[in-house]
């Protein structure tokens, strides 16, 4: 993973957030390719292509038109093909209910969108540099929500 550039996907209906996201990765100096989708339908269409290169990391906004982040998460977790994909929830709200639900559905981490660009960079860098192979085994609810 370290040698090749990391393939990152983001599904978020908010244009500004997509901008912050891509700009943050540009400034992070991590070899990465970032693709963004406006909603869940477009994301799933992309993933379900037979010849599609699967991402290492998928960032999912929860509140999206047409297909919500939760629905995408459910579909992805049902597909054996996507089992190695690390899924990060990337949402404005951090309600107990959303955290609980996405944790149960099998997301790897929950990020509450920060209100400072510096914090955003810090959060994304932490997620990308985490060794998920190791982290997955000790996954628990206490460290599910990323604390900055």
């Amino acid at each position: 993973m370290q040698n090749n550039s990391i393939k990152i996907l983001l599904a978020d209906d908010d244009e500004d957030d997509r901008l912050f996201f891509t700009e943050a990765f540009e400034e992070l100096k991590i070899k990465s390719s970032v693709s963004t989708f406006k909603n869940g339908v477009l994301l799933m269409e992309y993933l379900n292509q037979a010849n599609c290169v699967l991402p290492d990391l998928l960032f999912l906004d929860l509140n999206m038109p047409k297909k919500s982040g939760i629905e995408c998460l459910k579909e992805i977790k049902q597909e054996q093909r996507f089992k190695d994909m690390v899924i990060a929830i990337y949402s404005t709200s951090a309600s107990e209910e959303d955290i609980e639900k996405t944790f149960v559905l099998g997301a790897n981490i929950y990020i509450k969108k920060p209100n400072d660009f510096g914090k955003l960079k810090k959060a994304l860098s932490e997620v990308v540099t985490t060794n998920w192979q190791y982290q997955t085994n000790s996954l628990n609810k206490e460290n599910f929500l990323l604390r900055l």
């Binding site: 500004d16 957030d17 912050f20 404005t92 969108k113 920060p114 209100n115 400072d116 660009f117 510096g118 955003l120």
Partner: peptide
Amino acid sequence: RKIQTFIS
């Protein structure tokens, strides 16, 4: 949040 991020 966006205002704050843009300010930063």
